[in-house]
Amino acid sequence: MTGRASALRRAAVFGAFLAVAAAAGCSSLERTPTGAVIAAVRGGFVDPPPPAQPTRAEVEALGFATIAARFSDEGPRAFLVAAAVAEDYVTYSAADRRNLILHGAAVSAIRGVGSGLVSHASGPGPDPLVTRMPLEAWPSRLVRTWRFSDALGRETVRAAECRPRAVEAERVEILERRYDLVRVEERCTTSTGSFVNLHWVEPESGFVWKTRQWIGERTPPVWIEIVTPFG
């Protein structure tokens, strides 16, 4: 084997070792590079068991406001419980500490999902997702502004002009209970593209029982069903 071939072979082996060399090991400290690598590898090879689904009776027996959330279109449903309230911002938390902050029905922030969403604002005028109003009073245009925390801890801003439009009536089932709602499609246009938020609204009250909202360019939209409302 020539010197160069030997060097190339070693370079290839080195590349493989480098992937784990600096991250391996165990320690008295709770978080170790080994644990992170092993968890990441396992996560790629082993499908987690589907979470147990509670019944309506079990959820209502908790006595806490509860939502069901899916963090991708085909992802499993997770149940989050209202854990904290700050004026009209409600923090829902899952057992694995994925947190979701709702401002009314608007997703204001998410933790532990990879979205980086830290705040949401809208205007001009009242936001029907935040301030409940009959469907017929919903504005035809809103500007929504999201702030995301990036890899350097800095905030980036995304804004979209959104136009909600009632589409059709639908009967929706949320954990053994059915609702007669109206599906609203909210088409949002940014400087780089567009997306559609979906809301299933009780037409008389304007209460949003189910919603699918954009939470960033890198993560799928989040689906939220209100199982037991807050307040």
């Binding site: 947190n99 532990g112 999902v113 979205s115």
Partner: peptide, 20 residues
């Protein structure tokens, strides 16, 4: 690029909900 992580940020376990 340090500004472009290989994995999305904020995938770790979230904080305790802040109580008001």
């Amino acid at each position: 690029n340090p500004k472009e992580p290989l994995t999305p940020p904020d995938l770790e376990r979230g904080p305790a909900p802040f109580q008001v």
